[in-house]
Design a protein around this nucleic acid. Structure first.
Length: 568
DNA sequence: ACGCGTAGCGCG
DNA sequence: AAAGCGCGCTACGCGT
């Protein structure tokens, strides 16, 4: 059932030498050993995993990142895992497990995620034995040996069992661990990236690649134009402070140099300035330097951080993988004979809100493919833009502007749904915690926040109220964003399961990108239709898995393209 | 020399 | 038209 994979404990080492070793300990669902541990040199790690891997086996390890990349490099993939470190962070914050022994222990221990330097509070750790050979890893296995990992696994299983909502929590932990496997597999596959096309794109907009430290021709030309228009021969448009002063001298009264604020003014300098900012952004964020660093052998390989944000959304490190501008997406091309399958969930967050509030009116609005149009038809005279602004405002906590004004209409039409976010906001403002549908909890208020609320002076009160409202907006958004994130995780996991169900046929079809509510696959052209159907079917299955039979639909848009730019 | 906060903008 | 959530990255400019 479960096999714990970790460095051996001291008594288990097969020789006194310094050779890196790995221990395999079969345990039952409660974490109790069912056989003796097997210890092998890491050189035999891959073949041992390959031999033991079989349907139904779940690998238990401290972190997927310390084991799985090496296995993938050796051509081995596994069906399921239990990522102890990821599950630890969920159980640390989940209100459902806070009363359990493990949950309360964790809350009194420092949070690795918040404490940048665990070495400060924990004894220094020996370097992981897995740093060598096959297993180069960025993150040591935290030093936990097989006895410690299996003990913590057992504690986590008990915490789920003793929690308020064992079924939901178990699903959340399984989905998070599946996400960890998928992230490692995506890093292994990489995003197919045509450096030649990217370079052409840069040259057509910026001119030829300049020598280091020089502006590309087009930026230089625009800078000259700006100096003339602002009658300011030597200013540097890359410095916001200088730019702001130059704009003021030219009589353009702006409080910042943000593009949207500049756009509202009429001056000959505005057009070249906006163009300069756009191109300058392209150059600095996704220019030639970016290509040199991040694209090798036709692949962009960023690092994904599963559970990297409190809501359970992923984060990424390196190359800005979750911010690939539309401007450069044409460089993402399927290999010859392959195709890109790009899918995104349609209006995921408001649909999630409909479930959270059991709001049949909102569910009815989403009966078609376009939820916002449905809302528009029910309460906004068919004006889709208004409906969208109102709904986003409700989920983000807008109080002013157009969405603030439209809120009352939304509250009248969907009282059930709106009360979910309003209640979450009130809870947060009062210093409470909220949770997603499956039980991921938001962090408690910081010490600083709490002490600010204690104030009695009138001058400080305003600041305290502002902080309280800010936390209210966070918790308001958290319930929706976190539930949407776990739907997306279930969607990914269901998709992966379908791809693996017939490994022989789908071995060359890979998930290569995931962005909150969007997924991209790279697959042989002849499999495009079957894979597209899997994506759609996985979305239906994810909703069923999380929510059971509900009258809310979760449609996905799926397109088959050669270039990511054609996916919209 | 390096670390850090801020401004600005990219994505959802 | 331009506020209100979650992230990462770059350059600037200040501090040490």
């Amino acid at each position: 059932m479960y096999i714990v994979l970790a460095p051996p404990s001291n008594g288990q080492r097969i020789s006194a030498g310094g050779d890196a070793q790995a221990a395999f300990l079969p345990v039952d669902a409660a974490g109790a050993p069912t056989a003796d541990a097997i210890v092998v040199p890491v050189a035999q790690l891959g073949e041992t995993v390959r031999r033991m891997e079989q349907p139904g086996i779940r690998w238990v390890w401290d972190s997927t990142r310390s084991w799985y990349p090496g296995l993938l490099a050796a051509g081995i993939s596994v069906e399921r895992c239990h990522d102890v470190a990821l599950n630890r962070e969920i159980l640390r914050h989940s209100p459902s497990s806070s009363a359990t022994e493990y949950g309360s222990q964790l809350q009194s221990r420092p949070d690795e995620a918040e404490d940048a330097n665990p070495a400060r509070v924990l004894p220094p750790l020996a370097p992981s034995p897995l740093q060598e050979s096959l297993f180069e890893t960025t993150q040591p296995a935290a030093g936990a040996d097989v006895v410690e990992v299996s003990a913590e696994f057992a504690a986590q299983q008990r915490a789920v069992r003793d929690s308020d909502r064992p079924a939901q929590l178990a699903l959340l932990l399984a989905a998070e661990s599946a996400g960890a496997l998928i992230a490692a597999e995506m890093e292994h596959a990489g995003i197919p990236w045509r450096a030649d096309l990217h370079n052409e794109l840069l040259e057509s907009q910026l001119g030829p690649r300049p020598r280091d430290g020089h502006r590309p021709a087009e930026l230089e030309r625009l800078a000259g134009e700006l100096r003339t228009a602002l009658d300011n021969p030597r200013f540097n448009p890359d410095s916001p402070q200088e730019l702001l002063r130059a704009l003021h001298r030219a009589g353009i009264e702006v409080s910042s140099t943000r593009s949207w604020e500049l756009q509202r003014h009429n001056h000959p300098a505005i057009a070249p300035l906006l163009k300069y900012k756009k191109l300058s952004r392209l150059l600095t964020a996704n220019g030639w330097t970016w290509l040199d660093i991040w694209v090798h052998d036709g692949r962009f390989r960023p690092e994904y951080v599963v559970g990297g944000s409190m809501s359970g959304r992923w984060a990424s490190r390196g190359g800005g993988a979750l911010q690939i501008p539309h401007q450069v997406r044409d460089a993402v091309r399927a290999d010859t004979g392959y195709t890109l399958i790009v899918a995104d969930a349609a209006q995921l967050e408001p649909r999630v809100l409909a479930v959270l509030g059991r709001d049949s009116a909102l569910a009815a609005a989403g009966r078609g493919l376009d939820l916002y149009q449905g809302i528009a038809d029910q309460g906004f005279g068919g004006d889709r833009a208004k409906a969208k602004v109102a709904m986003l405002g409700a989920m983000y906590g807008a109080t002013t502007g157009e969405s603030g004004r439209l809120m009352p209409q939304l509250t009248r039409t969907y009282p059930q749904a709106i009360s979910v976010v309003e209640t979450a906001a009130r809870t947060g403002e009062a210093g409470g915690v909220v949770a997603s549908f499956l039980g991921r909890g938001c962090p408690p208020p910081s010490e600083r926040w709490l002490s600010a609320q204690q104030t009695s002076s009138a001058a400080e009160q305003q600041r305290a109220d502002s902080l309280a409202r800010s936390r209210g907006r966070f918790t308001r958004n958290f319930v929706v964003q976190a539930t949407a994130a776990e739907w997306a995780l279930c969607w990914l996991a269901e998709l992966r399961r379908r791809l693996r169900a017939n490994t022989a046929d789908y071995a060359s079809a890979h998930i290569i990108f995931f962005l909150h509510d969007e997924v991209m696959l790279h697959a042989p052209r002849e499999l495009a239709d079957q894979v597209s159907a899997m994506v759609t079917e996985a979305a239906r299955a994810a909703a069923q898995l999380m929510f059971g039979e509900i009258p809310v639909e979760f449609p996905v848009n799926v397109v088959v393209v050669d270039s990511y730019a054609d996916a919209k």
